[in-house]
Nucleic acid binder design. Structure first.
Lengths: 193, 193
DNA sequence: CGTCTATTTGAATGTACTCAAAAGCGGTGG
DNA sequence: CCACCGCTTTTGAGTACATTCAAATAGACG
């Protein structure tokens, strides 16, 4: 298990001693997932939070008509889980699938709780993680409320230029909350104009 | 300054000793705001995070055409700030106004940082606060993407029955991302059907 | 090479918006 | 106390943004 990238991620916010680093890595489980496999399925217990070492994941949910909504993409160096269900140990509301062959460092809910107890510095780490997730999600809400689909698409490709290389248009459309047909129309218009 | 409600709020997640309680309350500033006054204006430095003791606040932003989008309502026992700009000490992107005569306990950025240093338990408190804010905002994103305006309105009045008593329809419309005219049409339809 | 899915295209439709005007409601001053 | 003012809410007609459905084309993968 190569934890170099993960430890660098952690060290952006807190400084770990060698002993703490060892304790931390002992709580992790390494996992790989082939493209198109599901790491989490709606209704299942959501028992882990995952750090993506390489590859790409996508979290999405299905509405009553079976329509997909992409909640987030998780590329290398991102953390992902169905946060509400992970924290509250409720059946998952979403699916998490690998959109590339991927490998992850996973932290079970049990080990997450242990980690926070044993190395309280991680409270700060996860506070910052949650802060960033919150402010990012709040910005997304504002953009959804105020911008047209075309404007949201333009912001998306500017904000996540690396993501568009790894995902399909259908997936982008479901992240933006529009149909693939309409995204296609937006792109056609851009290509002409 | 009556901090009973605030201390109860804190104690839902962490246990403070008498000494810690005193240290904490020493960092707070009590503030009142008359209805229709602004606690924060776009472009200003966002220097505080506020706990609402009584009354009601509303956070909103303006787009390029001057259209308002309500980001959140903050009723009694809620925390509110322009989180991104507070944490990163950037000029505010939003307005926070009192929609009732209100009183708040405020924590400046300086004291927020001091608090986390001096009483590390508060890392946990704010982690949980951020977690809840994140998962709430994520749910809102999903609802914006998958539901019609009518469905969003129905969920809103079910989820926040106490809020609708204190806010105007125009404000609800701007929270849901629709025009006041269209919200009026939704309500007419409900009243008939 | 064939199959499956993603993407494109176009026509018809629906959801929500804009604009304009009337009605309702709350607060303020005479 | 009432009249007026400003703002909110309602109503309706016309419009724009985005969807649905169907079919054709293009790409990816075994």
């Amino acid at each position: 298990m190569d934890t170099a990238l993960l430890l660098k991620n952690i060290n952006r916010h807190i400084q770990l001693t060698a002993d703490e680093t060892e304790k931390f890595t002992a709580l992790l489980h390494y996992k790989t997932a082939a493209k198109k496999t599901c790491l989490l399925t709606e209704g299942q217990a959501c028992q882990t939070i995952s750090y993506v070492c390489s590859g790409a994941l996508r979290a999405y949910c299905l509405d009553k008509d079976g329509k997909e909504s992409t909640i987030m993409f998780a590329m290398a160096d991102w953390w992902v889980t169905d946060m509400f269900c992970f924290l509250n140990q409720q059946p998952a509301m979403m699916f998490i699938e690998a959109i590339e062959d991927s490998c992850m460092c996973e932290l079970s809910k049990t080990n997450f709780d242990l980690l926070l107890q044993r190395i309280p510095k991680f409270e700060k780490f996860f506070r910052v993680l949650m802060q960033n997730a919150y402010t990012r999600e709040q910005l997304r809400t504002i953009e959804n409320l105020t911008l047209t689909a075309e404007e949201r698409y333009n912001r998306f490709i500017n904000k996540y230029p690396q993501v568009i290389k790894q995902v399909t248009q259908k997936q982008i459309a479901s992240y933006l909350g529009i149909t693939p047909e309409f995204l296609s129309a937006i792109r056609r218009k851009k290509a002409l104009g």
